[in-house]
């Protein structure tokens, strides 16, 4: 939701980045204020996923220009774990499986690590169990998720729910959801979206990275951005998503080029 006078959480200016020598981001600008939900849409290969990984600090991407400020600090100077502790959360498109590590053990370790760095109390195993079970209700997850290995043998929907469960526990200021709707059936999509909606509040912000408009029926964005060739070329309200759904992406590029010519 857009709040009057809310403060800026994330400010990206002219971000350029390479992966193995190929330029993927070419001057991306984005401003996200607390309370807002943003959707970044665009065709495959436009750089959406790269952008979300760069925000989380993936080392495979080399930032070659521009700035990223998060709550007044230079995000690009922080290691991935420092970003997580500072309140940046990335829900992965393909969460990894960790056979051999129990989900409960994993969740408690990450929770306590982040809590400690935020100067808050750790929870012992019993307290944590109560806490996590409460959060799991939000995502309609059965408690036996806790007994299984992290994401091992989880269905696509279960993995995504487990991602949002981690988001619920780590309580980020900025959550980036990378293609969270991919591979979800309609029931799982509704559950995941419902969880995200309950987590959204006036102090945090959510960036949804998605190829399809479908997710936006459930999580209603305040802003919709269209990415193409490594930058945001159009920004609108939630109705832009519907237009993209019916007209596709091509017209945005055409319109963008026409505007660029007119102003040149």
């Amino acid at each position: 939701m857009i709040y009057k006078d809310s403060k800026i959480l994330l400010e990206v200016r002219g971000l350029c980045a390479n992966v193995s020598g190929t330029e993927i981001l070419k001057g991306l600008d984005l401003t996200v204020r607390s309370g807002e939900i943003h959707a970044i849409m665009g065709p495959n290969g436009s750089g959406k996923s790269t952008f979300s990984k760069i925000l989380a600090g993936h080392s495979a991407y080399e930032v070659t220009g521009g700035t990223v400020m998060f709550e007044g600090q230079n995000l690009l100077e922080l290691a991935p774990e420092e970003r997580a502790r500072a309140g940046v959360f990335l829900a992965f498109q393909y969460p990894i499986e960790i056979p051999g590590v129990g989900n409960s053990q994993f969740l408690r370790l990450t929770y306590n690590t982040v809590q400690t760095h935020r100067g808050k109390e750790e929870l012992d195993p019993l307290e944590f169990d109560d806490y996590v079970r409460e959060k799991m209700k939000l995502l309609e997850m059965s408690p036996d998720f806790l007994e299984r290995s992290v994401n091992e043998g989880f269905s696509g929907g279960e993995k995504k729910r487990n991602e949002i469960l981690q988001m619920a526990m780590l309580d980020p200021r900025l959550a980036i959801l990378d293609e969270t709707d991919s591979g979800l059936d309609i029931d799982a999509l509704r559950i995941v979206a419902n969880g995200v909606n309950q987590l959204a509040n006036k102090d945090n912000a959510i960036v949804l990275v998605t190829h399809y408009q479908r997710l936006l029926n459930y999580i209603v964005p305040d802003y919709v951005h269209v990415m193409e060739a490594g930058r945001i070329i159009k920004t609108g309200g939630k109705e832009l998503a519907f237009e993209l759904e019916s007209r596709g992406y091509d017209w945005v590029g055409v319109e963008h080029k026409a505007t660029a010519r007119a102003t040149a």
Partner: peptide, 13 residues
């Protein structure tokens, strides 16, 4: 695997 290490780092470890 670096992707796996990154996943855990992105959770604060």
């Amino acid at each position: 695997d670096n992707e796996e290490v990154f996943y855990l780092q992105s959770r604060g470890l």
